[in-house]
Amino acid sequence: MTLVRAFYVGLLRRVPPVKTRAAVALVEFTIRRVFSGKRISATLLLLMVAPAVAGALAALGASRPGVAPFFDQLTFHLSLHITLVLTAMVYGVALTSSEIEDGTAGYLFLTACPRWQVALAHVLVVSPILAILTGASIALTYAAATLSPAGAPMAGPVVILADTLIAWIALTAYLAFFVFCGYAFKRNLAISVGTMLVWEFLLPMIPTKFATLTVTLNTRVLWLYLAQQGERGRWFRHLTGVDLPNYGQASMFLSVVVALFLTLAMITAMNRSVIGREAA
């Protein structure tokens, strides 16, 4: 018994190696950077759009019938599609190319943390924080909707939790993509925004089988299963010629996208030269 206790005391008192301490500091430093600068203001502003619209709608259209579905649309289209892409873009670009440009990334690359860890932290530390903020925004949207006497949907904690989980998965995929672009391309903003527009916004509108190869569509499928009992209903009425993937296919697709872009982000971070402003 004494030996077991001595083992645990020794384990707790053990000074972790330099690389472990640096990795812990990197996680904390990334969290610190999430809540600083203009990026957090921009994100909070974006996240407040849906609750503000819901609040205004509840106040203005209080007695009109048919208002209730609009609150779901707000969550579905705004919070879980457009806002997610935009917040991921704000952070993906701010933490990579913007920091390389303003010179702060140079300090981070000269620490005990390997560059792949820096890229990994940018995705895996930032995405759950943004997901929690998105979840709070969705909860506020529903809270505002309950003000409407026309009969707003009562979301309940399970649906909000499901929305947050889906937001986390989608944010991880988008962030991995933007972090990859931030390290890989000089004109990363133009390239990433262009790709996102074609891939995520135009492709789902086209009734081709390629429409199923988007993060948006697959996260929506997860959303259908987790929050809407798998009923396609009105959510995909524009996709008439497309067979929706099932839950397993959607999970697999999103896993592959996350793994692919996360790996690419780490590889490009390892190979990115941080050039001086004169050279740039």
């Binding site: 190696p17 330099v18 690389k19 301490r21 640096a22 500091a25 990197l26 904390e28 430093f29 610190r32 950077r33 600083s36 600068g37 702060t104 300090y107 981070l108 620490t111 005990a112 943390c113």
Partner: peptide, 18 residues
């Protein structure tokens, strides 16, 4: 990071160096 204090900046840099 302009919002950081000099002390905070140096402390982070040292922590990131283990």
């Amino acid at each position: 990071h302009e919002w950081m204090s000099g002390r905070e900046f140096l402390t982070w840099m040292l922590r990131l160096r283990g």
